[in-house]
Nucleic acid binder design. Sequence first.
RNA 1: CGGGGUGUGGCUCAGGUGGCAGAGCGUCGGCUUCGGGAGCCGAAGGUCAGGGGUUCAAGUCCCCUCACCCCGACCA
Length: 570
Amino acid sequence: MRWSRYFLYTSKEEPADTEAPSHRLLLKGGFIKQASAGIYELTPPGVRVLRKIENIVRKEMDRSGAQEVLLTILNPAELWNETGRWELYGRELFTLKDRNGREYCLGPTHEEEITDLVRSYISSYRQLPVVLYQIQVKFRDEKRPRFGLIRGREFIMKDAYSFDVDEFSAMLSYESMKFAYDRIFKKLRLKTLLVEASVGTIGGISSHEFVALTPYGEARVAYCESCGYGANAEIVKLPKPKEEVEEELPLREVHTPDTDTIEKLSSFLGVPARKIIKAVLYMVNGSEPVMFLIRGDRNVDENKVEAVLKTENFRLAEDQEVWELLKTKKGFIGPFNLPPKVKVYWDNSTYGIKNAVIAFNKPDYHYLNANPGRDFSYGEFVDVCQVEEKDPCPKCGGPLKVSKGLELGHIFLLGTRYSEPMKAYYTDQKGQEKPIIMGCYGIGISRCISAIVEQYHDEKGIKWPTPVAPFELDIICVNPTDSQQREVSERLYLLAEEEGIETIYDDRDQSPGFKFADADLCGFPYRIVVGKKVKEGKVELQKRHTGERWDVDIEEAIKTVKKFIQEDKL
RNA sequence: CGGGGUGUGGCUCAGGUGGCAGAGCGUCGGCUUCGGGAGCCGAAGGUCAGGGGUUCAAGUCCCCUCACCCCGACCA
C-alpha cells in the first residue's frame, strides 16, 4: 500500500479529552474516530487490526469445534419476554419500534436468539453437543462509556454458546472453551490472568474471566503469586480474623463533635481506624433498612452486599431516612436500640475486636472501649468486605495482590437459565424430554484492540505485535526527489509485496522527521529506511519493539524482514 | 444516578470589565529544503453547540435545551 493513497491520517496535535494511552494513541494514530459517546468508527488501518484479531479468534474457535453463525442485530421483544430479560435488562437495552409499533432491541448479547435458533432444529440427544459462535456488533446503553474502545456502547464481540445433554458434558465444552481462550490470548500476545468470577444473580454453575492487567480497567482482581489463585475481587471470601488479645478497658461515652467520617473520628480520638466499628445503612427495595457493621479501615463491597441481599435493588440511606429511623445522623449510627424493622449484619472483619469505638445513635457521641459480649452482642456474620492488598489468599493463606484489570473474555456455564423458559428441549435415549444445558462465552474483540495498545506502547506511539499489526513493514523513502532513493524504495516495495509481506510504503512528499514520527506512532513492527546510504548499497532496518537499527545490503533487506516476521508468528 | 467541567475554522486552543472573529497546526497555490513532526511568500476556510432573553450593540451577561469529557459509585 502506498501511503500517499492510503486512508490513514495521523494528527500532530494531542487529542483532547483522553485519559487512557490506548484511547489517545488510537485517535492520534488515525485508527479510530469518535462518532458519539462510546461509539467509534474504524478507519482502514483500524479495520486491518480488527480483522486480524477476528481471524485469530475465528481460527481458534473453529479449531475447538465451534461453528460460526450470524444472528440478527434487531431482535423482537417476544423472545426477550420469554426469559423475562426485556424487563430485567433495564435501561442498558437499546429499544425501538417498527412502523407497526412492534418492539425490538438492538442485541446486547444473544442468548435468546441462539436458543431460539437451536430449539427450532435440535430435538434429539444425537444432535448434541453443539457449539455455535458469531462475531458481531453489540449494543449496550452503558451508564458511563469511557476510554475509547475500552467501554463503548457499540462494540464488537465474539459470543459463543454451547449446548449439551447434561452437566458433565457441558463442563467439557466449558473446559475446551477455556483452552481455546488461552490459545487466543497467547496468539494476540496479550498477557491475561484467568480468574474465577461471580455467577451473578442469574445463577449458573461456573464462571471465569480472562483479565488483562492494565491501569485502565474497571475490574478489580485479586491473585496469589504463591499458589496461582485468581479471582474477581468481589468473590474473594474474607474469613473472620483471630480474636484480639487485649485487656478490656471500662466503657466510656465520649463527646465527638463533627466526626462524621472515620478519618475525622480516628484523628479526633487518636484511635486507629481498625479499632472503629462503622455502620453502613442501606435501604433495600426502597424502604427496608439493612445495617452492615464493618471495621473502620475497611470498605463495603457492594457486589458482596448484592450477594447477601439477593437483590441489586438497594442504595445507601439518605440523611432524612437516617433521622426518621434512628433519630441520628450519618457518622453516629450504631447497632443499639434499633427499631425491629432494621435488619443487622456483622461483617467478618468485626469479629474478635477489643476496646472498639462504636456509635450508638446519639449525635456527636461515641462509645470508647466497647467490647463484644460485655457492651454489645454480635448477630449474623456475613462477608461484605472489599478485598485489599495483603489479605489472605483463600487457597493458601499467602498475601494477595490486588490489581485493576480489563475484562477481555468471560466464560459462563449457564445451565438451563435460557433453555428452560424458552423450552429448548431434547429427547434423551429413554425418550424423555429434557432441557438443554447451555454455556456462553464472550470475547470483547474491539476491546482487545485497546488492551493490546495498553500493553504495547511507549511515549512515541503504538508497538503492534506482528500478528495483529495493520502492516508488518513500513518502507520510508527519506528523499523522494532523489531518483536513486526513489528507485530503490519502489523496488523494495514491489519485492516485499511479492514476498507476501504486508507493507505500507511511505512515498509521501513529507520531511523525513514527519515520516519517522508517523512510523513510530502507528507502530509498524519493521521499518526499512531508504536514505543516503543507497549510494553504498545499504538501507537501514529498524525494529519498532526494541528500537534496534542496523544497515543491511539492499538485496538482503526484504529477506531479513521476512525471516523476522516468520519468527514473530511462531 | 449524582457531582464537576467543556463546547469558537478540519485539529489544538486564545478571545479581562459587552464594541469589526483570532493564533498555531492542517488544507490550497508558489519558491526553497530533504535522516527525527522543515523555511519563506500568498490564499481559502466561521450559524462562536442550539433556542430564548437583557441591550443601541452579545462569542462575552441571564434562562432553557442539547452534546461531549472527567470524578464518584470509596460512605456511616
